[in-house]
Design a binder for these strands. Structure first.
Length: 139
DNA sequence: GCCAACGTTGGC
DNA sequence: GCCAACGTTGGC
């Protein structure tokens, strides 16, 4: 089991839209960054991830599950770009803001804090647990 | 709205 | 293969 974090602007693809897709989920398309793509290629069905709203909200709002391995991105003919499918698992009881992550010394090395521009990134098991704690999520 | 960080492109 | 120019992301 590996943990991840997916970033999206609310205007582009929001948590509510993800939830509306239900268990069918949706492909995480549109990624045009090699690092982000490589992370998606490393994902396995059953992996869990956080759903983060960038720009305005700047907070982790929910948990998603990877439901399909990486496959060609249907929004482009360029075969360099792959994506996975994800579905919403549950919303966090309270969102965890970027500011909260920055304020917690245990999260000082988190990619979210240190590489603001990477839209798909790994999360360590320790970070995963800490964020669930900050969110008041009991699993 | 600005700007820092960083990734990509393309000329050489 | 280097690097300058440019474009984009996203926090502030």
């Amino acid at each position: 089991m590996t943990f991840w974090l997916f970033k999206s602007e609310v205007a582009t693809w929001s948590w509510d839209q993800q939830v509306a897709k239900g268990d069918a989920g949706e492909e995480w398309d549109g990624v045009r960054n090699y690092q982000a793509r490589n992370h998606m290629r490393a994902m396995k069905p059953g992996d869990l991830g956080f759903f983060y709203h960038s720009q305005k909200e700047k907070e982790i709002v929910g948990i998603i599950e990877v439901i399909a391995e990486s496959h060609p991105d249907s929004t482009t003919d360029d075969d360099r770009w792959d994506c996975v499918d994800i579905k919403a698992v549950r919303a966090l009881p309270r969102p965890v803001t970027l500011a909260m992550c920055k304020d917690d010394p245990r999260l000082a090395d988190m990619v979210l804090v240190n590489n603001t521009r990477l839209s798909v990134q790994p999360v360590t098991p320790e970070e995963w647990t800490i964020i669930l704690e900050l969110a008041g999520d009991k699993g």
